[in-house]
Computed example of a mutant assay.
Amino acid sequence: MGSKTFIYDIIIYLYTLSLLFSFSDTIHKNRRAKWIGTGLLIIVWILQSNFFILRMLEHSYFPILTMFDTLFFFSWIVVTISLMLNIILKHELFVFAVNVAAFTIMVISFFSDSSALPTLQNWAIHDELLFIHITLAMSSYAFFLVSFILSCLYLILFRMLKEKKWFNYLKKLPSLEKIDRFAFFTVIIGLPLLLVSIILILIWMILTDHLSYLLDLKVLNSFLVLGAYIFYLIKKLKIHSPGNNLAFWNIIAFIILLINFIISNYLSDFHMWIWM
C-alpha cells in the first residue's frame, strides 16, 4: 500500500465524497448536493487524467499493460462516460449507478500492485498495435458496462411496473423506452470498438507469426463476446424482440465479457501480463 501515491489517495477520498453527495441527491432531491457531487466528480476526472499522464511519463510507455493500469484506465473511461451522461440524460439514479461501478473498479485497482512493470516475452512494449488493441478493447468494455447497467435498471423498472409497485426514486429513472434506446446506443458504440480491437490483434498475430494464439481460450472467448453482442443487435434490429428480452440477453452478453476479462486470464497464455 505504501507504493500508492498521494494523488491516488486523494482521488479515492474525493470520489467517495462525490458518491455520498450524489446519493443524497438521489434519495432526497437536493440541487446543492447534486452540484457538489458533480463538481467533485469533475475534479476526480481531472486528477485521474493527471495521474495517468504522470505514470506515462514516469514509465515511458502508455500505462495499460498491468492490472493496476488497466483497471485505472477502465475506471477513467467510465467516469468520462458518466460525466457525458450526466449532461445528456440528467437522470440521477442511473448516473449514480454508473459512478458506483466506476468507483468499484478503481477500488479494485487500488489493491493491485501499482509498482508492477510489464515483462513481455513475446511483445515489444512499444508495439503500437498492442496499445491500440488494449485501448479500444477497454473502451468497448466501458460502453458495454454502461449498457449492462441500463439493462439491469430496465428489468428492475419493468418488474416494478408489472407488479404495479411504485417508489418515488423510480421517477429518477428514464422511461423504459429511453432506457432501451440508450442501452442499444451504447452497444452500437462499443461493438465497433471491440471489432476493430480484435481485427488489430489478428493483424498483430499475422505480422509476428503468432497464429497459434487463435486457439487460446481468451482469444476464442473474445470471438464469443463479439458474437453475443452481434446477436443482441440481430434481436433488436431484425427479430424486434421485446425490451425485457433484449435487456436479459444484454446482461448475458456482459457476463460472457466478464468471463473473458477475468477468468480466462488465469487459464490463458494471452494477456496474462494484465494481471501483474
Rank of each mutant, 00 (worst) to 15 (best):
L195I: 10
F143Q: 01
L20Q: 02
A183T: 01
I262T: 12
D180W: 08
F23Y: 10
V146E: 01
N244T: 11
D209N: 14
I252C: 07
L211N: 06
L211F: 13
I156G: 05
K165T: 12
I255P: 02
A137S: 13
I88L: 12
V79I: 03
L120R: 03
T186H: 03
L237K: 11
L65A: 09
N245V: 15
A183F: 01
L193P: 00
L71V: 10
W45K: 04
S3T: 11
K171Y: 09
L258R: 08
H240E: 06
F143Y: 04
L267W: 10
G39D: 08
F167N: 10
M160P: 02
F231M: 05
F103Y: 08
F73T: 00
S139I: 10
Y141S: 01
I46F: 14
F167A: 09
T80S: 09
L258T: 05
Y266A: 14
L129A: 10
R31W: 09
K172W: 04
N86W: 06
D25V: 07
L202N: 10
S60F: 12
D216P: 03
T135E: 02
M67W: 08
S82W: 01
F270L: 12
W123T: 08
I251S: 11
I198R: 02
V95Q: 05
G2M: 14
G37M: 01
F23V: 12
L202K: 12
G243F: 08
H91G: 06
L47T: 04
C152L: 15
I274T: 11
T104A: 13
C152S: 09
G39W: 15
M160G: 05
L191N: 01
